[in-house]
């Protein structure tokens, strides 16, 4: 009887640990298992991705609609290729949409700003595996200063 009670309490202990582990996995580290199933993949090529990282957010007007899955260098033209996974909840974006790399606040993290295009007749929606053609690269401070200096010299 005494050992039964010990076994019960150990069982509760294990259950608590699993609960804590699940909470850390889902709520804290966001390892949601569902995300890979309920999302579709889009690609975008940038000239410069700046400080963008894997798992950075993809936002439409500040609302997170997906995450950066992968960042590689395209072998054909040596430009960075960003893979984004977008939640299937948001699958009505037209092909004319554009993406740009933005910074949240002055010193914040970089994320992908997704600008939905106009839905005109004859324009299809973005679907799994599509490339977004219209991209704006990250602002690099050094380039910006360079541009400013050159333009002031010219003027």
């Amino acid at each position: 009887m005494k050992s039964k009670k010990a076994e019960l309490l150990v069982g509760v202990f294990v259950a608590l640990t699993i609960a804590a582990g699940l909470m850390l996995a889902l709520n804290v580290a966001n390892q949601s298992m569902a995300s890979s199933e309920d999302s579709y993949i889009l690609y975008a090529k940038f000239d410069n991705i700046g400080g963008l990282k894997v798992r950075s957010a993809v936002k439409v007007g500040g609302v997170t609609v997906g995450r950066v899955d992968n960042i590689t260098l395209s072998n054909s033209d040596f430009t960075p290729l960003v893979t984004m996974s977008i939640s299937t909840e948001f699958n009505q974006f037209p092909e004319t949409s554009s993406v740009s790399i933005l910074t949240s606040g002055l010193l914040g993290e970089q994320y992908i700003g997704f600008q939905p295009g106009f839905a005109i007749d004859g324009v299809e929606n973005l679907a799994q595996g599509d490339y977004i053609e219209d991209t704006k690269s990250a602002l690099v401070l050094e380039d910006l200063i360079g541009q400013f200096l050159f333009s002031s010299n010219d003027g």
């Binding site: 850390l24 996995a25 709520n27 804290v28 580290a29 966001n30 390892q31 798992r55 950075s56 957010a57 997170t64 993290e109």
Partner: peptide, 15 residues
């Protein structure tokens, strides 16, 4: 509180 935590914490690296 939760979402920035989720964006920052990495399962392999941190947990």
């Amino acid at each position: 509180y939760w979402s920035i935590m989720q964006a920052t914490v990495d399962w392999n690296k941190d947990v």
